[in-house]
């Protein structure tokens, strides 16, 4: 099976039922997307497929259609995406394990809704669980990212 991740083509020989998450993590060594629940309850595995936020634990590799972007492809420590820059500025992370998914979900939201209200943020981001409780900082960082993207 072929797939394109962060602009690079890959070919893997696995069970077509294998979730994209485990192809990324164990076959391709791309570990930004995290395993948290395996059943779309936590959002830690969120990636983009053709720009749409998707829980990679729910996409069988045999059903994958479209290019995959993971947190590593969104921005890098040397060239941060606006959402990542806002996450750094607000020091959102505690353990940080959910944050790849939070950032990918937030980035997808801002593509579609550049000026989210508090209610929009709560509606979009509530599928991403944070056990450390960084929600107040996530809210603030989303707003900063929105403002910076608007100014860009």
């Amino acid at each position: 099976m072929k797939l394109n991740v962060n602009g690079a083509d890959h070919e893997v020989d696995v069970d077509p039922n294998m979730p994209l998450l485990w192809v990324l993590r164990d076959e391709l060594g791309i570990t930004g997307p995290k395993y948290g629940c395996g059943i779309a309850q936590c959002g830690a595995c969120t990636v983009h497929i053709d720009g749409q936020a998707v829980r990679s634990c729910q996409v069988a590799i045999g059903d994958l259609q479209g290019d995959v972007t993971t947190i590593e492809g969104l921005g890098t420590p040397d060239a941060l995406h606006a959402v990542q820059a806002a996450w750094v500025e607000h020091q959102v992370a505690q353990c940080g394990y959910c944050q790849s998914g939070q950032i990918m979900q937030a980035a997808a939201m801002l593509e579609l809704n550049p000026e989210p209200t508090d209610a929009d943020i709560d509606a979009v981001m509530s599928g991403n669980l944070c056990r450390c409780g960084t929600y107040p900082r996530i809210r603030a960082a989303v707003k900063t990212a929105a403002a910076n993207l608007k100014g860009a």
Binding site: N17, G38, I39, Q52, A53, Q58, Q105, G127
Partner: peptide, 25 residues
């Protein structure tokens, strides 16, 4: 869900028959 989170963010398109996980979308 286009205004917020697309349903298909979790209820992914699935043609390949596989185990349907308890409590998953």
């Amino acid at each position: 869900g286009a205004e917020y989170v697309l349903c298909s963010t979790c209820h992914a398109y699935r043609e390949v028959t596989g185990t349907r996980l308890p409590h998953a979308a």
